[in-house]
Design a protein around this nucleic acid. Structure first.
Lengths: 338, 338
DNA sequence: TTGTACGCGTTATCAT
DNA sequence: ATGATAACGCGTACAA
């Protein structure tokens, strides 16, 4: 690997001059510029970004921490494609670090990215508690933004959706359609999102004066297969239901699959509701209605806010920037035209 | 950010000593070690990986180049989850760079990762030709492995599947089931994979002595909606078909969706075949059969081979390592248990 | 067992 | 317009 020094020798100039023509800063005569360009071409010179970043104290990269249990599935794809696309426009690079499967490992992933001198971090947490994150944010010098959690202290460092309310709205919509026996398939209950969506279900029943029956609740693990198993469990419990709410689309798909193979006509007798984690889902399974959960909006907002903090821009700029992008339309297909 | 020098001062020792206790290399007395540990804790010291990597000339990271047109969809998730999991076991980090949407940009992504001094690169190419890649591999010092393409020169730097043959097998299977009028939905024909799968279709018909009819071929663009549109085009062409092969699962899903809404009973009259890009697909749509395309196997093999080249290990070790992992089972659900 | 001093490849601040 | 030279933060022979 040719270094800047070798190029300098070959061109008969000093390192400084080469650096000048490469960066475009400072004056260089036309002829020496030519000589340098020539030498660069001859040596296949490529700059060492480690050295450069060490010198300028900035890497133009931002780090993303996600648990690998989310790696399979569309949720993750959405996250990645939107993040990469937005940062690409800003000339920044995304580095993904694996949050693995514990709070300690999520913490380690953050520190790893900071050790790499990422300019900022976005974490989509799974195991760290909000208090732990508040503490982390307070300690680190670089900005660490948290998606999908509501922090107690650093309000401007988190972007969240009201999962409980969204879930409650969905359930109330079913109730208002006349359903009174509504089954509910939870997500993993050790995840805040899972717990909040369940809480929304309970709140909706309470608000409409419908008694809660535990037999209508089955625990799932977010994936399709667990949705099917939960559905089987509900049926076996003997409790009839006229509608079913699954805590995400994958489980809803699993539920529909089970109902179908069990010869229960889905569209007629059972209405299944999922959450819009998978843009494709409604096209795949017509019987499925989905509530929109703004993953995309959240990550978009997080990146815009982070960039504003880094560039020292104002909040207005950040919001305008976020608003100027309508990423969702560009990725998810519109109403299905067949 | 505290540096190693500040820690050294605070502990009353030299940089070198601090470096020794941190890395574990070299002798240090028990008491000075304690003093250093204390100072490290007090200063919240974190090593600067840029400086370290610059010094040791190795980053323990490997780079992955993928076009962002693949970011949405399960193909990408599979790629990422398997890659990250394998590298995690080896204490290495994965850095993803966007290949964007042209050969030049794919080339730029490779160079960017090399400038960051990744120890090696894996590219899942979309626009670069095999000849361009052979040239790139020849020029760069670091190993660049190519997935899903057959290179002309650097045979040990590429991992590929015989897309044409796999496609032909699928079509022949349908023929042997008695089908003679088989529709085919292509992928994007500017992608080698799309072209090869179409070639397989044609070869299978030829081999079984069935005349090729262009009216039975419709062009798709890999996504579900284009699959539905292609199906509509086939129907409008007036050419009846008893079976349909789509060049990937997403389009197969779109096809089934169209047939269903058009009141054509899928399982009875039409057999739809996709390629197993989406592990979930067969569970989603019972009418869909899939041919297994080994994305997972390819990426697994690529990483194993790359690691072997980097660690200077033997090919036997690489193969044994690859074989020791049965990643697929751990991610894709087994036969659907409801 | 510990410290000195140099190298890693750039950028940036001085002079000249 | 160009060239020394000092950072940047860390690893590591080599000496002591």
């Amino acid at each position: 690997m040719a270094t800047i020094l070798e190029v300098a020798k070959r061109a008969g100039v000093s390192k400084a001059t080469v650096s000048r023509v490469l960066s475009g800063n400072g004056y260089v005569s036309h002829e020496t510029r030519e000589k340098v360009m020539q030498a660069v071409a001859e040596t296949d010179f490529r700059p060492n970004l480690l050295a450069r970043n060490l010198s300028v104290k900035s890497t133009q990269t931002i780090g993303l921490v996600v648990t690998n249990t989310l790696y399979s599935g569309n949720y993750f794809s959405e996250l990645m494609s939107h993040s990469a696309r937005m940062l690409e426009q800003q000339g920044r690079q995304l580095i993904l670090a694996d949050g693995k499967h514990s709070a300690a490992q999520e913490r380690a992933a953050i520190d790893f990215l900071l050790d790499l001198r990422c300019d900022g971090i976005i974490i989509y947490p799974r195991f760290l508690t909000v208090d732990e994150m508040d503490e982390i944010i307070a300690q680190r010098k670089q900005p660490v933004l948290v998606v999908n959690r509501r922090l107690r202290q650093h309000h401007s460092y988190c972007i969240y959706a009201d999962q409980k309310q969204i879930s409650a709205m969905a359930v109330k919509a079913l109730i208002d359609l006349g359903h009174r026996d509504i089954g509910f398939i939870t997500g993993s209950l050790d995840s805040p999102t899972g717990a909040e969506r369940l809480a929304g279900y309970k709140a909706a029943l309470h608000e409409r004066g419908i008694p809660l029956r535990e037999a209508l609740i089955a625990e799932g693990k977010w994936h399709a297969q667990s949705g099917a198993q939960a559905t089987a469990a509900l049926i076996n419990s003997g409790c009839a239901f006229s509608a079913l709410v699954a805590s995400n689309d994958e489980m809803a798909i699993g539920a529909i699959r089970h109902l179908t193979t069990a010869n229960i006509a889905v569209p007629k007798q059972v209405s299944v509701l999922g959450f819009d984690d998978i843009p494709l889902a409604p096209y795949i399974v017509p019987a499925l209605s989905s509530v929109r959960i703004p993953v995309t909006d959240m990550i978009q907002e997080a990146i815009a806010r982070l960039l504003a903090m880094l560039d020292g821009g104002s909040w207005q700029e950040a919001e305008a920037f976020a608003a100027s992008l309508s990423l969702r339309e560009s990725v998810a297909p519109g109403p299905f035209a067949s």
